[in-house]
């Protein structure tokens, strides 16, 4: 399972990097979204997908729970990446409005300064 997950995470990172390196702002944002999925899965995998119990006391009379700490970390990460993604999306939308293009070739630093 961990082997499969590792390879899958590697693929997700590769795809994310590929998209982030493209010229379109939208693809870049999709790339960052995939990247955060990949990171979340990474944390989960490294914490061990040990098929323990759901970390809620009293559901079953067992003491073998899945590690709750990575789950708490991922939960925080999901929310933060959502906030950032939402911000990026609106930023891309505004950039498109201002620059009439979604190509990052329009967002080159000194050209914008010339205006």
């Amino acid at each position: 399972m961990e082997l499969l997950m590792s390879i899958l995470i590697g693929l997700m990172f590769a795809a994310a990097v590929y998209l982030i390196l493209s010229k379109s702002l939208l693809r870049i944002i999709i790339g960052t979204a995939i990247l955060s999925h990949g990171v979340n899965l990474f944390v989960l995998t490294m914490g061990g997908i040990k098929r323990g119990n759901v970390p809620i006391l009293g559901i079953k009379a067992t003491s073998l729970y899945n590690d709750p700490l990575p789950q708490a970390l991922i939960l925080t990460a999901i929310v933060i990446s959502f906030g950032v993604t939402a911000f990026f999306l609106v930023l891309a939308y505004r950039a498109y409005q201002e620059l009439d293009s979604e190509s990052i070739s329009k967002t080159r630093g000194h050209e914008a300064d010339d205006e």
Binding site: I9, A14, Y18
Partner: peptide, 13 residues
């Protein structure tokens, strides 16, 4: 670069 990053991350994992 994308393949490189993917391979690197997989190896770390």
């Amino acid at each position: 670069l994308s393949i490189g990053v993917g391979v690197a991350v997989t190896l770390i994992a």
